[in-house]
Write a protein that binds this DNA or RNA. Structure first.
Lengths: 337, 337
DNA sequence: TTGTACGCGTTATCAA
DNA sequence: TTGATAACGCGTACAA
């Protein structure tokens, strides 16, 4: 590794004191420095290819310009677009993301959080909030800025970004009711996760609005394909419905697997809907009717809110509810009479 | 934020000098410290809940226990499983990954690399090596450890991890030839990327082995669906083939889009193959015949090689070629006579 | 407007 | 075996 160019080197070349260089390079204090020396310094910086050492700066300021992002599982296609949104917003302001997967495992979640905190991240974006969350509590206690995405924390005063689940579910109900479905079942998300609960409640409300009987609800233990399959099997045994509303796309995939195995056709025998509009669900067999959530924008918004807090631009607790849109594809159709 | 517990606090409580605490806590120098004082120190650490500050350690040692990972685009399903492999290997040794998306854009790639280097990452894992790569060259020049994944650099002395492209393509040729295909076309990857070239060459070799005519090859400009579509359209105009070998799954998806639009059926009218076995391609319409590469293991292996270098366990340049497996699904069938 | 001096928390070197 | 001291690169009160 080349001997690193430091503030001192720049100072020497520009013929000034290191402190002056430091001032010249900081947005706030730049106006304190003479226009002429400023120019000399910038030239020296350019010549030497100086890059400030963020580690040293951190030690001095306590800021790392780095945020920790905790995500359940990167291989779930829901999350990468959100992460891109986060990264894009951060990069604009010179920040970077440290990403940690938790696998929805408490022990791993703690390990990851410690690893990130030891690196002095300036704040956290959590996509993994369980409803009662020790990891979150620890952050709040230590007054580390936090924003949750797609998971509302139990504590109301934690900033959050989420999709408009109610509107999305309502749109699904409108769609299914409009097609003539009356016996509708649901595969709900895990109890512990707020997304699951919110969507289940919205469904109940929607059905009531149409005067339809309450949905048969089966509870998934995780947002996984195997759980989707298990729930679908349970549904097939216990009830006789014409449409299944899955709490997310992955669950819908699992459900459709089972239907295919049983020789039931979607949407002829049964309509199925998802939620999130993950990449490639438009290419499934059949293409999935689902609700699109603005993933990139959600990540962007979360990062923006977090940055506002970190940079002290606001102390208000912001909650963002992002608009959604029903995307009708081939997995829904009128029920067979 | 609570006043942070430092080495000094521990030293004071244990009644020793900070330097002694430092020694007691470092694996290497622990044996230099008296068993009794060691015990006192560990108790103090426990009582105070001391966690070493990695930033300060970095300033002193130059090590961050953090590696930079540059990936073209996280939303491409090929990459998340590789990242998981990387993260799992890193976490075991207390390392963390800083991930940056480059969008295959040179300017952004430089911005990201600067952001990561300013944070003193100990090494890089690159999934974005173009064949002549300035970004890579800069790292090599500065003697920063680098490992490339899925992209072999021009420089032979850069450690790399890649899938066995030759074996994968050979398996595809065997499969197609076995089905009776003789007129085979290829959608090749971008010229600039080694993956594209290697797979194109392997295909040529495979066809020769069977005494088949060389493939009509159309070159994609990127590994994107739109490029896959464009190439497929070009193929349909210029030649009359019964099978199309796409250089990766995403290109295959784009190709199948076009075929569907034109009313051509896969595999009845045309067989299509992909490469990588991305998540969910088994659920497409039709399910894609492709080559599975061990993504998690590739990430794991890359991190292991990088850590060996960073920790000075070896100076040998390691190249890992990972085994692949043909996965036959519904997108391939015998040609219509 | 610029220079001086100090400290952020840690580790490495040297002396005791 | 332990303590003292300096240094890593930077930012910032304070003095000039």
């Amino acid at each position: 590794m080349q001997p690193k160019v430091t503030l001192r080197d720049v100072a020497a070349r520009a013929g000034v004191h290191p402190a002056t260089v430091s001032r010249a390079l900081s947005e706030d204090s730049r106006r304190q420095v003479n226009a002429d020396t400023l120019r000399r310094i910038l030239v020296a910086v350019e010549d030497l290819g100086y890059e400030p050492d963020l580690t040293a700066r951190t030690l001095r300021t306590g800021r790392t310009a780095t945020v920790g992002v905790m995500v359940p599982d990167l291989t779930n296609p829901l999350f990468p677009p959100i992460l891109r949104g986060i990264e894009d917003a951060l990069l604009e302001r010179g920040f970077t993301a440290l990403i940690g997967n938790t696998d929805n495992d408490l022990e791993r979640e703690q390990r990851v959080q410690r690893a990130l905190r030891a690196r002095n991240v300036d704040g956290f974006i959590l996509m993994t909030t369980h409803r009662s969350d020790q990891a979150l509590a620890a952050l709040v206690r230590d007054e580390i800025p936090v924003v949750t995405v797609n998971r509302v924390a139990g504590e109301p005063d934690i900033p959050s970004v989420r999709a408009d689940d109610d509107a999305g579910i309502a749109a699904i109900v409108d769609h299914l009711a409009g097609l003539g479905h009356t016996r509708i079942a649901a595969i709900a998300g895990p109890r512990g996760l707020s997304t699951g609960r919110a969507r289940a409640r919205a469904l109940a409300a929607g059905l009531r609005r149409y005067g339809l009987p309450p949905a048969t609800v089966v509870q998934a233990r995780a947002f996984s394909e195997t759980e989707g399959s298990r729930c679908m099997e349970e549904l097939l045994e216990s009830s006789d419905v014409t449409a299944v509303v899955a709490s997310n796309d992955v669950l819908a995939l699992g459900a459709m697997d089972v239907l295919r195995q049983r020789g039931l056709r979607v949407p002829d025998d049964l309509s199925v809907t998802g939620f999130n509009d993950m990449r490639f669900v438009d290419r499934l067999n059949p293409p999935l009717t689902t609700v699109r959530i603005p993933k990139h924008e959600m990540g962007w918004e979360a990062a923006r809110i977090l940055l506002d807090r970190i940079l002290g631009k606001t102390t208000a607790t912001q909650h963002a509810v992002m608009p959604v849109r029903l995307v009708v594809r081939g997995s829904t159709a009128p029920p067979r009479s």
